[in-house]
Design a protein around this nucleic acid. Structure first.
Length: 521
RNA sequence: GGCGCGUUCUUCUAACGGUUAGGAAGUCGGAUUCUCAUUCCGAAAAUAGCAGUUCGAUUCUGCUACGCGCUACCA
């Protein structure tokens, strides 16, 4: 009874608060597909609950700034169809949305924690700490800045107030560290994993505020999430260990903390570990949504967009990495994903990335997209090869061959013969189908078709062809395949008579003629 | 090492105490077809291990193993 009452209370609380989530990447390079998925899940959750999706750039580490990365992130989200409600481009009531531009806001909260005794100034230099770490390591131990060690280090807990003041006036570098309380069990419900408990004795005194005047991730994300009225923090599993720190920070700052959900990781297709850029290079699939050129090394990484994937197929595939609707439906538009999405249906375990399934999704989208849409894309591709032609012609080609294509360029590989005569003839097909006597047969068929004076359309061409075949008593299989080689250049493609109709009588006769002259037995 | 999280066919996963453990990708058959591709049928393929709770465990608990994550003045 008490339990259901408190549940009811929670429910009411939830209801009264508007859902606001954020995607908060660090602009240190191109956005990895794991990051895109995090953004997607945040977006889906927000839209499902009529909430807002914010984009906040976490650039508190100036040493890791990469030019172009921020822009890349926004372009990638845009390509995916993930619309930002508040962000650095869109603006919003909590601007600025770049942490480096919010720099002035953080110190106040760090000082507030120090004043309340929940944080302290520490003057130990990075070099001193490094030394302690390597010394501990050589003894097979790990150095941790915590309740045990802070009493013998240089900080405002161990030196007098006057000394602290003197050091600061002298301009000594210092950081502000969180004073992790001792032996407290911090329990928090993760929306995906359930109740998770950590004991503070195993945690360290994290730096909250760096000596360069910037907050660390921990402080900045808590302050900003509070100020920006974030209701749910949905992020990667790698953040789970810092959840207790964040919960404590909210508590000490006197704030209500958002709900947390930690997403499982995306793993390598083969072997162990999380997906990395290397896996893509090695196995030939993109790991990034968009092509990326490293501004320092010039190194190029493939992108899904440039590799010909449809953004909606890419998003559909991503949604199914760690989430499933519980039904047998697999193809979902963004709107359908929004309707169906539920954090409770996000799995707990990491999923291996499957490049093959991604292709399958793309093929499904190729099949389902209207011919006109695919034709528009294919038209661009053709234009790139200097081929221009009628929209309706392209559309008809698309309708005939898209079922055998995964990507737009496949339409060319599967249908170039609709636009130009074969430049070469497939060796395998010739070996199998271009037999003794075939050239003569082809010539005769050419003659028959040449004198054919009915309407040049598939059904009548077929009729004429069949009549002639019957009169000759030739094997349909043998002749048709050879004929196909003349027209297409290989043993592939849709109905041959339809192809003849499409390319026209002149072209058909010319190709027969060329094949007979060119192909050697 | 410490802490945390995880573990169902090769892969993505369903089954939130009772099913012949279901679907999808891939693979292999077969049907259709002038060919290729589609499409349609079919096949092989899984609850990490050991205890416990229970009339009954994939499902709950514990231990073991394995995997992953975190353990920076990086996010």
């Amino acid at each position: 009874m008490i339990e259901s009452l408190s549940l009811l209370k929670n429910f009411k609380e939830m209801e009264s608060q508007k859902v606001r989530v954020r995607f908060a990447p660090s602009p240190t390079g191109p956005l990895h597909i794991g990051g895109v998925r995090t953004a997607l899940f945040n977006y889906l959750f927000a839209k499902k609950n009529n909430g807002d999706f914010l984009l906040r750039i976490e650039d508190t580490d100036q040493t890791r700034f990469v030019p172009g990365a921020e822009n890349y992130i926004m372009e990638a989200l845009e390509w995916c169809g993930i619309k930002v409600d508040e962000g650095i481009r869109e603006g919003g009531p909590h601007a600025p949305y770049r942490q480096s531009e919010r720099k002035a806001m953080y110190k106040k909260y760090a000082d507030q924690l120090v004043a309340a005794g929940d944080a302290y100034y520490a003057f130990d230099t990075p070099e001193e700490l490094d030394q302690l770490r390597t010394a501990a390591e050589s003894k097979g131990e790990t150095f941790t800045y915590n309740a045990e060690t802070r009493v013998s280090l240089c900080n405002s807990l161990t030196i007098t107030e006057a000394e602290v003041k003197a050091k600061m006036e002298r301009g000594d570098h210092y950081v502000i560290r969180f004073k992790m309380p001792s032996n407290v069990d911090v329990s928090e419900v993760d929306m995906i994993r359930g109740l998770v408990t950590f004991n503070t004795d195993r945690l360290d005194d994290k730096v909250l505020f760096k000596s360069d005047g910037m907050p660390t991730y921990h402080l900045a994300n808590v302050v900003d999430d509070h100020l920006m009225e974030i209701s749910h923090v949905i992020r990667g599993e790698e953040w789970l260990p810092s959840m207790p720190l964040h919960v404590l920070l909210y508590e000490k700052l006197g704030w209500k903390h958002p709900r947390f959900a930690h997403l499982p990781l995306i793993l390598k297709p083969v072997g162990k570990g999380k997906l990395s850029k290397r896996d893509g290079d090695k196995m030939g699939f993109p790991v990034f949504p968009l092509l990326w050129t490293d501004p320092f090394t010039g190194e190029i990484s493939k992108g899904y967009r440039e590799d010909g994937y449809f953004p909606d197929a890419f998003v559909n595939m991503l949604a199914f990495l760690g989430w499933n609707p519980g039904t047998e439906q697999e193809i979902f538009s963004m709107d359908e994903l929004i309707k169906a999405f539920d954090l409770e249906r996000v799995g707990k375990s990491g999923s291996k990335f499957d490049p093959e399934k991604t292709k399958w999704f793309n093929h499904q989208y190729m099949l389902r997209k209207p011919d006109s849409e695919v034709a528009g894309l294919f038209k661009e591709f053709l234009a790139g090869r200097g081929i221009t032609c009628d929209d309706s012609y392209i559309q008809r080609v698309v309708s005939m061959i898209k079922e055998r294509a995964v990507f737009i360029p496949d339409l060319w590989a599967q249908g170039s013969y609709f636009f130009e005569e074969p430049s070469e003839y497939d060796e395998q097909s010739i070996k199998k189908r271009w037999k003794e006597g075939v050239p003569q047969m082809m010539s005769e068929i050419g003659d028959v078709l040449s004198s054919f004076d009915g309407t040049w359309e598939a059904s009548s061409i077929k009729e004429c062809f069949s009549e002639f075949m019957n009169s000759k008593g030739w094997g349909f299989g043998l002749v048709m395949n050879a004929f196909r080689i003349c027209i297409v250049g290989a043993a592939m493609g849709p109905d041959l008579f339809e192809i003849c109709e499409m390319i026209g009588k002149e072209e058909t006769l010319q190709r027969i003629d060329k094949a007979v002259k060119t192909i050697v037995l």
